[in-house]
Structure formats: C-alpha cells, structure tokens
Write a protein that binds this DNA or RNA. Structure first.
Lengths: 135, 135
DNA sequence: AGTAAAGCTTACGTTGACGTAAGCGTAACG
DNA sequence: CGTTACGCTTACGTCAACGTAAGCTTTACT
C-alpha cells in the first residue's frame, strides 16, 4: 500500500490536530510543511503529519517557528551535504543544551512554587481557624 | 540599615539584569514592578529586583507577562482578603500542574533529540569513513 | 439549475512585547 | 556656559503568528 490512503485533506488535518486551515497554509508558506497538490487542493502526507506534531510540541516549549524549521532539518538529513549536516548537528546540540538548562530551571521553579503553595495553605488554614473561633 | 542603600537607578538595573530602560518602564506600566520616585526619577527597590528575576525566569518558560503578573501576586499574599487568596492559590496550583506537564514533555523531547543526535553522529562518522576510503 | 460545502488566493487587521524617535528637564563636567 | 549624560513622557513603528474578510472555483447534493 503506497501513499494513496496516506493523504489527508486540509479539513481532516484540522480536525485531527486541532488547528485552523489558516495555520496549515501559513506553515506551508513558511516551509514547515510540504503538502502535495491535487489541482489546487493541498493533500497532506504522513510526513507532513509527523512534522506537524513536532511543530506543535516545539511551540509548547516556546520555540519560534524559525527555530522549529531548523530543528526539522534534522529529520531530513538524508539529502544534505556533509557541511550542512555538520552545521545542523551543532544547532541541535545547542538546542539540547538549552533544553537541559530549561529543565533545570523548571525543576527549581517547581520546587519554589511548591514551597510557596505550602505556605499559602497554612495561612488559609489559620484564617479558617480564626474564623471558626470568632463564631 | 533601611532601604537607603537598597535603591538602584534605572541604568544600574539595566546593567545588572541586561534589560533596556524601555523594558523596565514597560513592566512598571503593566504593574509588574513598583519603583519609588525621587522627583521624576525611578528608584528600584530590593523587592523590585526580586520580582524582576522572577519575571525574566517566567519569560524563559514562555509565560506571558499577564500570567507572570498573576504569579507574582503569590509573593504578595500578606494583604489579601481570603477569597482573593483562595483564588490566587488555585491559579498557582493550576500553574504548577502546567509546569509539571511541561517538564514531562521536555523530558520526552530531550530523549528524542538525544536519539536523533546519536543517529546523526553515526552518519557523520560513516561519511568520514567513506571519504577516507576514497582518498 | 440552484445552492451549500470545501478549497483557494490576496490582503488587511490584531495582539504582545517591546524598539525607536522626538522633545524636554536637570545635573555634572571641562 | 556650552554640551554631554541620564532621565522623563508621549507616541508611532515593528515583528511574529496567525485571524478575518472578500471574492472566486470546484465538487456534491437535491
């Protein structure tokens, strides 16, 4: 089975990934997706869907579309020249380092927020105590 | 020692935290910072500096300034009424859950990126092999 | 044949987070 | 006393990431 079954219309994509048509066209214009055409109409391949998942995840981390586009090149390594590939490899390493720094900070922030919440919980409890005593 | 020594000019702030004056004024206008005034001039307190650190960290996680403003209320709990406090507490809990979800995703993404990098390293190595053999 | 649904292109609008320029005050330096 | 440095306000500009509206096709009913 080739990719005959493998193609999705823009509406199907929108339903499947909870995005608007505009968003998909916009991503194509920015060369993040490469749907094939049947006449005028876009048809999205399995590969487009894989890329879209990565795009949406990247966005949740606050990466810009341009950064995501560079990351996506990693998944396209097959047809690159070596120097290009080397460059992409370096970008990805930097990004990985960024993500690990971000993870460390996130851990710290979570810990602090937890403390703060414990403190807040105590205060709320003591206010309830006071209220009860006043009745 | 009161806060006599505790105050910084806008330039000092910029140097210390690597932001522009515009940014600090903007944060004030959005009620994220509350510098005192000496005549016209802004003077930033220790409390402003603590807030600024939190703002900058929040930004690295992709939080919007408005979200950050709400989080900062947590650090101001002292003078709130209980219902307000309860509300803030809930917001913080949601935010904590968000952050933990984000951390889980980040872990996943890091793992995948690592795999991808290993793969890329192998390819680069084999290309070097081929190049060597061709000489 | 009529019309509703899905798709397309072109192009202007919007929001957040500042950048940047204009014009003014004042304080210190040479 | 001129000018350089720092600071202020007001206000228009910008960039990313789409939203939204207009106007035109093609396909699918009924």
């Amino acid at each position: 089975m080739p990719d005959s079954e493998d193609l999705m219309s823009i509406r199907q994509m929108c339903a499947a990934y909870d995005v608007t048509p505009r968003t998909l066209r916009f991503y194509e214009s920015k060369e993040l997706l490469f749907p094939v055409r049947e006449g005028q109409k876009r048809l999205f391949t399995k590969s487009d869907r894989a890329r879209l998942k990565l795009i949406l995840r990247g966005k949740r981390f606050g990466f810009s579309l341009e950064e995501i586009r560079q990351l996506l090149e990693l998944y396209n390594i097959g047809d690159q020249q070596q120097t290009q590939l080397q460059r992409t490899y370096e970008i990805a390493q930097d990004r990985l380092a960024d993500m690990e720094r971000q993870r460390a900070e996130l851990d710290e922030a979570i810990a602090e927020l937890r403390e703060q919440l414990d403190w807040g919980a105590k205060i709320i409890a003591s206010m309830n105590q006071a209220k009860k005593a006043a009745e």
